[in-house]
């Protein structure tokens, strides 16, 4: 039987930011991330952001699907089917990176076809080989990715930052 431990570098230390020319990638830790699905969720949360909408502050919602949002730092909600909404705590399920600097979008464009000229109601997209929720936050970009894909995503971002010089 094969031991592949040496073929895979141990997971990176996300607490140290990545630096590149004109870009910094930092892991941030939202207090709460809540998945909320409902037929009328976009009526209940009309401010849920798409692309290239700009989020501000600490608390906001992202539009994921026709009937689903991701609430960031919203109130604590009981999981399950309540009041016509399906609710799940996903705080630890999604890892969040913040990309700051003039070349932030250029970095993201290494991994996905995206343009500020092409709006989208949803912030979900495929990028760097994984599912991302990608949006503008103040003067930066933020992305949420499946937690277990975090190390691979971090590795790719670092490789691209090295290439961008």
């Amino acid at each position: 039987m094969r031991d592949d431990s040496q073929s895979w570098a141990p997971p990176p230390d996300h607490s140290q930011p990545l630096h590149g020319a004109g870009v910094t990638v930092t892991r941030i830790l939202p207090v709460r991330q809540t998945l909320i699905s409902a037929p009328d969720i976009l009526t209940r949360q009309p401010a849920a952001l798409g692309w290239p909408d700009v989020a501000t502050g600490d608390r906001y919602s992202l539009c994921l699907r026709r009937d689903r949002v991701l609430e960031i730092n919203g109130p604590e909600r009981a999981a399950g089917w309540h009041d016509g909404q399906a609710i799940s705590d996903i705080t630890d399920g999604l890892i969040v990176f913040e990309i700051a600097g003039a070349a932030a979008l250029a970095l993201i464009q290494r991994g996905t076809e995206i343009s500020e000229r092409q709006p989208s109601r949803s912030v979900q997209r495929l990028g760097f080989g994984t599912e991302l929720m990608l949006y503008r936050w103040e003067d930066r970009l933020r992305l949420h990715a499946p937690r277990a894909d975090g190390p691979a995503l971090w590795h790719r971002l670092k490789a691209h930052l090295d290439l961008m010089g």
């Binding site: 009328d40 969720i41 976009l42 009526t43 009309p46 539009c63 026709r66 009937d67 109601r121």
Partner: peptide, 13 residues
């Protein structure tokens, strides 16, 4: 065109 017969009551899409 979406496969849904009815769209959820929302104005945003």
């Amino acid at each position: 065109k979406t496969l849904r017969r009815t769209l959820p009551a929302e104005g945003a899409a």
